[in-house]
Design a protein around this nucleic acid. Structure first.
Lengths: 245, 245
DNA sequence: GAGTGGTCTAGACCACAAA
DNA sequence: TTGTGGTCTAGACCACTCA
C-alpha cells in the first residue's frame, strides 16, 4: 500500500486540499481499500514534506465527508461499505438531466407581486414587500412530472421566462453569484384534486408527492421558497441525512 | 457587544469546544445579533489567552454548523435569519414523542431468517446470511400512523419485542454502542392496497408516503435497512439538506 | 495602507488502545 | 510500553476587501 502522493508547492491550490483530493481519488478509485489503514499522520507528513497540522486538515476534510474514520490509538481507516457519492441539495432539473431524462420546462406564470402572509413568513420579509412568483411545469419526454411554484426575493431572480425554460432555478441562482448553503424541506403526500390531475396528466385522487422547501444562502438569507407537486408514479426523492455530532 | 467569554483550563473539555459552545449559546440567546461581526480572531485569542488556531477551530465548528460566515478582508459574521435548529437523522418514535404524540408500538413480527436478495443487497451481506426482521405498527392516540419493516444484522439488534414496544429502534441501537453516522433515504408515494389500507385504517387507494432507508454507522457499515409506509394524512417528513462544498 | 481571514510550520503534551 | 490520534502553542507569510 504505497500510494503515489505528492504536493506541488508552486500551485495556488492549498497543500491540504491537494492532499485531500488525492486521498479522495485514491479511495474512489479503490487504491485505498475499505477498512485499510492510512498510516500515521506524522509519517505521512514527513513523507510529503508537510507539517502535521496540514496533513490533519486534509484528513479531517475526508472524515467530515464520511470517507475516513479516525480512532485514537488505532489509526485512520477508510470507511467500510459502498456508501459514497454524497447527495447534494438537489435541483430537479439537474437530477433529471443527469439521469438522461431530457427535462423540459414550461413557464406557466412569472410575475412580481406583493407578498401574501404565507410567502412573507416563509421568506422572512414584510408582508406587502415585492416578491417574484414563478410557476412551472416540468416534463420529461413530453410528459409532465412536476408542478413547481416558487417565491423569491426580486433581487435573487432576474431571469426571464426563456431562461427558466432552458435551465433550473438553482443553476440560475448560482450563476447570479449566490452561494447556496442549505434547505429545509417537508415532504408529504396527498390525493390529486381534479385541477392538479389534469395539469399533471393523472387521475383525480392519484397520489402526489408534495414538497415545500425553504433555501438559504451562505449568509443565512432565504433565497427561495417553493411549494411543489410531483407525480408519485414517476418520481421519488433520494437524499442523504447526516447525524449531527 | 462585549460578550462574556471565558475558558476553564482545568476542565477536560477542549478549549476550542468550550469557546464554540459559548459562542453558539450567545447566538442562540440573541446576545450576538444576526449580521453582527464577531471581532477578529487574533484579538479574540488574546482576550481569552488562547492561540489563534484554537480560536479558529472553535469558529470553524460554527461555520460548519451554518451559524457563522467568514469573509476574507471583512470578518466573521453571525448568519442572518432565523437560523434553524438542525434536524437530525430522525427517529419516528423520537419525533412523535417530542411532539407530545405519545407514540405506541405494536410488534407484528420479530424473527431471524436468511436474507433474501433484496435485503442482502441493501445490507451489503451475502444472500442467505442471517438477518433480523422486525415489523412494527406505530400508533399515536391509539390510531395507526405507520407500518415499519426493518432488516438488521443480528449482532446489531438483540432486543426483544417488549423493548421494541417501549422505545425506538435508533435509541436501542445507540444504547447498544452503535454510533450512527448517516442514512440514505428515498421517499415516494403510492396508493394503499386493500391490505395496507386495513392495517393503517385508511381507505383503499388512499395516498401513502413510502420511505426506504439504509443507515450507516461511523465505520460505514450498514446497520439497518427499512422499508416503511406512512399515512400521508397524518405524517410528513421534515429534514434539512446541506450543500456540499 | 490597514485590517481581515486563509494557510502553514515545528514543535509540545495528553488520552486512549493494543500488545 | 508503544503507537495512535486529540489538542494546543506562538509565531509566519499571503490574499483579499475596503477606505
Amino acid at each position: 500500500m504505497d500510494l503515489q502522493l505528492s504536493v506541488d508547492r508552486s500551485s495556488p491550490v492549498p497543500l491540504y486540499f491537494q492532499l485531500s483530493q488525492q486521498l479522495e481519488a485514491a479511495i474512489e478509485h479503490g487504491d485505498l481499500a475499505p477498512g485499510s489503514l492510512l498510516g500515521n499522520e506524522i509519517e505521512l507528513a514527513g513523507r510529503l514534506g508537510l507539517s502535521r497540522p496540514t496533513v490533519r486538515q486534509a484528513i479531517q476534510a475526508l472524515v467530515d465527508k464520511g470517507l475516513l474514520v479516525r480512532r485514537r490509538g488505532i489509526g485512520t481507516q477508510v470507511v467500510h461499505s459502498q456508501v459514497r457519492r454524497p447527495l447534494e441539495l438537489s435541483s430537479l432539473y439537474d437530477d433529471l438531466e443527469a439521469a438522461g431524462q431530457q427535462p423540459a420546462t414550461r413557464v406557466l406564470r412569472l410575475e412580481t407581486q406583493e407578498a401574501g402572509a404565507e410567502a412573507a413568513a416563509a421568506l422572512g420579509i414584510a408582508e406587502g414587500t415585492e416578491v417574484r412568483v414563478v410557476e412551472r411545469l416540468r416534463l420529461t419526454h413530453g410528459e409532465p412530472i412536476a408542478y413547481l411554484r416558487n417565491h423569491l426575493p426580486p433581487d435573487v431572480l432576474k431571469a426571464e421566462a426563456d431562461e427558466l425554460e432552458r435551465t433550473g432555478l438553482y443553476r440560475l441562482m448560482r450563476g447570479a453569484g449566490i452561494t447556496l448553503h442549505s434547505a429545509r424541506q417537508s415532504v408529504g403526500a396527498r390525493a390529486a384534486t381534479a385541477a392538479e390531475a389534469e395539469l399533471l396528466d393523472e387521475r383525480r385522487g392519484a397520489p402526489l408527492l408534495t414538497m415545500q422547501r425553504t433555501t438559504f444562502d451562505d449568509t443565512g438569507r432565504v433565497v427561495e421558497f417553493g411549494s411543489h407537486l410531483y407525480r408519485a408514479s414517476r418520481y421519488a426523492f433520494d437524499f442523504q441525512l447526516l447525524v449531527r455530532s
